[in-house]
Design a protein around this nucleic acid. Structure first.
Lengths: 383, 383
DNA sequence: GCATTTAATTCACTGCTCGAAAAAAGGATT
DNA sequence: AATCCTTTTTTCGAGCAGTGAATTAAATGC
């Protein structure tokens, strides 16, 4: 945006924006450009101040139970290059996760030699429970991921900082970008697919490891109930994730071991059957909706999101689960008093995850810029 | 503390502390004193910088289902005077809550004419769901409280700011003061008594209306279960609050209307019976523990407190509920991975509530000091 | 070519903070 | 009692981020 707009938005004076802006341009962090729609306007035309794309770059990695996506982005947030590949559940049995990522990052850097030297950060979206240091996962629904150091090997190989970020929180932060008129109200994003996950997004983003991303899918729904992939009984996921719905639909006993992987086609088929009125399938989605609904109603007593976004492959089955979810929500005190949260569906879950991770990464790059600035200031004192 | 210690704690230089300190002393906000244990030490003795007690005062009001407590505190946080009285459940039927508080505040101010003029804030601890503006309660377990404006009448009558604060959050913030070695980990405080309530405390205190204080007691435990005072079925409270335990113990059908008030003696008697082995009473507390335990296990999937404090009258029955609570927690994924939170009992719930409210009020007074300072600075620019 | 309009810069100034040096206030030593 | 030592506090000059007012810059309209 222009310097004048920046002054309004930041609350700083024009004088300060000029000073700071010229310093950052000198450092190569910002660049000047022309504002697109300035033609025909009166007065001195505004000059756009934008991030210098080539100032720094970052790699963004999204790991899923089924696939990996590796993106190279520049400091303006534009995608430079991307590598996508499916991931078989057993691939990490032989290759440590860090090695697995090395291959892809190397490929990305080889393909973009101009950008490689300014790589500053590598951020990885993961599912599961992070350890205290944030270096590895203590538990993950992705096979062979837990307990393996990830951040540290990356840091050593590429000499840049790296962070693991929980997918649930990213999903929520990214989804918030889709609903800019939420104001300061919290938002919950629920992922329904091969797992059930949830993230909370607050405007002033707490987003610490203790909060924001949750283990919603493993909240108990029914004590002693269906067997979950995590080994517990009665988790929401055991009813609402793809394997749970399939198990119910085909009347497999609920304590039999969950399928390690459900082909997308099998799930889609089930959705189709339910949509066309097959009783057993409809029943399975009813139970799934009920599990999610009670989970949300329980969530409402702790953090009350004003808006709930349902996303992931299960979003296509939302119509089949809607009435159960809404019934459960309606019967909760908080909803009765404060009104029910609005619920919307967002089919593509990868876009919000990427956007959330992108926002997080750009924030990291920004702080590295300001840290550099402070270090310079400190050094300049030394003769 | 001394200026030197202040410099270390705040991170400011000694020079700045001297400057700021002398200005605040001139304003009458701070005062100098002698540090107690300075005798015998070498070097120039440190001078204690403390809050000027008489600089400002605040009223702290704690409303409960059974009683009201009104305290006058000074700027150093010391209690100046206090009025306590029981409250019959029907008293607010005739008198609006604001009027009811006026009587007590008036009495407090009449009794302390020297302090009255420097009253700056009136804070009220309440239970229930606040409306957006924070002026009144949309719902409350206290009869005839909901929907009645409270903050605005107080502001008009006394000309000072006023805030309603949810009791659950205060309990947690106050309890955190009891466990200073928690570091930055979240803490949950559970109140068990005529209601069941919970508050979460984070070190960087988010504490907005959307978070911190929760409706934990009205989290669903069993769909369609026991009838709660809130009108819903299956709330944790309907099993674990005094009326719920009594209902179970005396084999009253769980859908019969809850008792409006349980005499403390009746509850104590039940605890005693259970402690001495009466089967029906023990069973009732087992069910209560199970409700709380599953509630906590569900909470753990959203916010994982490192420590849980059980307080209120029900704390005396903790031993009777402990094994059910711990069993439920043990069977949750987060506890299996991250370890179980430590659970302790704190019998007196009023002290942490008061301390929490006190901390909140002193914070408000501080910001009023700094606001005054900023206003002065702004005015001094005008000739 | 000149008035008008809007954007950006310059410049003198303020307030906050700091480091280093000096002063203050005691006990310890002789 | 005089002097040294230790620790706290203040003083002083300097730096820096930020500001308002005035000025300059770059366009359009007439």
């Amino acid at each position: 945006m222009s310097r004048t707009r920046l002054a309004v938005v930041t609350g700083l004076s024009n004088a300060s924006i000029t000073a700071i802006g010229s310093e950052l341009i000198a450092q190569g962090v910002l660049a000047e450009g022309n504002i697109a729609d300035s033609a025909g306007a009166r007065g001195r035309p505004a000059v756009e101040l934008s991030f210098n794309r080539r100032a720094r770059h970052a790699a963004i990695i999204e790991i899923d139970v089924t696939r990996v996506r590796c993106s190279l982005v520049d400091y303006a947030g534009t995608l430079v290059d991307r590598i996508e590949s499916p991931m078989a559940p057993e691939v990490l049995a032989d290759t440590p996760p860090a090695m697995f990522l090395f291959e892809r990052i190397d490929q990305l850097l080889r393909r973009n030699p101009a950008e490689a030297p300014s790589l500053q950060h590598i951020a990885v979206s993961v599912q599961g429970i992070l350890d205290r240091s944030g270096d590895s996962l203590k538990w993950s629904p992705i096979a062979h991921m837990s307990g393996q150091s990830i951040v540290e090997p990356i840091r050593q190989r590429y000499g840049v900082a790296s962070t693991l970020v929980k997918r649930g929180g990213l999903l929520a932060d990214g989804a918030r970008l889709l609903y800019p008129d939420l104001g300061d109200q919290p938002l919950a994003a629920v992922f329904v697919g091969s797992t059930v996950a949830m993230g909370l997004s607050f405007p002033d983003r707490l987003a610490g490891p203790d909060f924001g991303a949750t283990e919603f899918g493993h909240m108990n729904h029914i004590p002693g109930g269906a067997l979950c992939r995590c080994g517990q009984k009665g988790c929401i996921e055991a009813y609402a994730a793809d394997y749970g719905v399939l198990r119910t639909a085909y009347a497999v006993p609920e304590h039999s071991p969950p399928a390690p992987k459900v082909p997308p086609a099998a799930y889609d088929e089930l959705v189709h059957l339910a949509q066309t009125g097959r009783r057993t399938s409809m029943h399975a989605f009813n139970l799934a909706g009920r599990a999610i609904g009670f989970g949300l109603s329980r969530l409402m007593t702790i953090a009350a999101p004003a808006h709930i976004v349902i996303t992931g492959p299960g979003a296509s089955a939302f119509a089949l689960m809607r009435s159960e979810i809404e019934t459960a929500l309606r019967d909760s005190l908080v909803c009765r008093i404060n009104g029910q949260p609005t619920i919307t569906v967002h089919h593509d879950e990868r876009e919000p995850i990427f956007q959330g991770l992108l926002a997080s990464v750009l924030g990291v790059l920004d702080t590295s810029v300001s840290a550099l600035h402070n270090a310079d200031a400190a050094l300049s004192g030394v003769p």
